[in-house]
């Protein structure tokens, strides 16, 4: 049966339910959130319809600037760490037997699907004084006594890299599978060492993929809302944490909504960049 344009209104019937669901429960909530971001906050956690820019004006404070700067810096650091770790890993994974690939992919998917709560709990245990890695170091005689490694910036970064690493591998995987193996073979035949072939042939060939992956992991890391809270101090809180905090604990919905709208704009801008990077990749 060939694809054909819908002939009768009845042909649109299958579209009805999905379109209604997505419109009512995604477009409308999204619009509600944007509307609320312009609302006036009342004392006691309520808000009244209005059209004020107060919630956006609060962005102009030094505190907010600091949080935004920190969020961006943290997400960039996570993205770079993940891509640097995942690129050679994924490259080697795609050159392995199918069986080994499947085992690793199942493991990576299992970790990727883990709740942030669970990742946060696992790492806070690993970094704790009573059950942490420092106990192993003490047992080996490297450290004098066990100590807690959390809360700290290093703990937040480690937790977030742990969370984003499987995602990075899965984003890189399709591009690396399709990478022409004769490219590296040619380099090897011409006398390049495997390492040299990787850096002079594979990495440049994947330049656009790497850029796109960096941006996608950056967006992914920007969405982390619990790890900075569970593994860091308040100065390590990110925009996502702040939004949750304002919405739930400070009951300031309009301000939370305004921050969320801002976060959407940042994300959409980055998605547009990814698409442009992807287009260039196809053209090349």
């Amino acid at each position: 049966m060939r694809r054909e344009p819908p002939q009768t209104p009845g042909d649109y019937a299958p579209l009805l339910f999905p379109a209604a669901m997505l419109t009512i429960f995604f477009v409308v909530p999204f619009g509600t959130m944007i509307a609320v971001s312009f609302f006036q906050r009342q004392q006691g956690g309520f808000y009244t319809p209005a059209f004020v820019f107060d919630n956006y004006a609060r962005f102009l404070s030094a505190f907010f600037g600091g949080v935004l700067g920190f969020s961006l810096m943290l997400a960039i650091t996570v993205a770079i760490c993940c891509v640097v770790l995942a690129l050679p890993f994924t490259y080697m994974l795609t050159r392995m037997s199918r069986k080994v690939q499947v085992v690793w992919l199942v493991a990576l998917l299992s970790i990727l699907s883990l709740s942030e709560v669970i990742i946060g709990f696992a790492w806070s245990t690993l970094f704790s004084r009573t059950a942490g890695i420092t106990n192993i170091l003490v047992a080996l005689g490297i450290m004098a006594e066990a100590k807690a490694l959390t809360p700290s910036f290093g703990a937040v970064l480690t937790g977030m890299v742990y969370q984003a690493f499987p995602y990075t591998v899965l984003v890189l995987f399709p591009a690396l599978v399709r990478l022409d193996p004769t490219l590296t073979e040619a380099a090897r035949t011409l006398g390049a060492s495997p390492l040299k072939a990787f850096f002079t042939v594979v990495v440049p060939a994947l330049r656009n993929t790497i850029t796109a992956t960096l941006i996608m992991v950056f967006i992914f890391a920007l969405g982390s809302y619990l790890l900075p809270q569970l593994l860091g101090r308040p100065q390590h809180w990110t925009l996502s944490v702040l939004i949750t905090d304002q919405a739930i604990y400070q009951s300031n919905m309009p301000f939370a909504a305004a921050m969320a709208v801002f976060l959407v704009l940042v994300t959409l801008g980055l998605v547009a960049l990814t698409v442009i990077a992807g287009r260039k990749g196809e053209a090349a």
Partner: peptide, 17 residues
């Protein structure tokens, strides 16, 4: 879209809705 945006956004949209 909901999966691509940071999860907090969908969550907050649902909450206000």
């Amino acid at each position: 879209a909901p999966f691509t945006l940071p999860p907090v956004i969908t969550a907050l949209g649902m909450l206000t809705f």
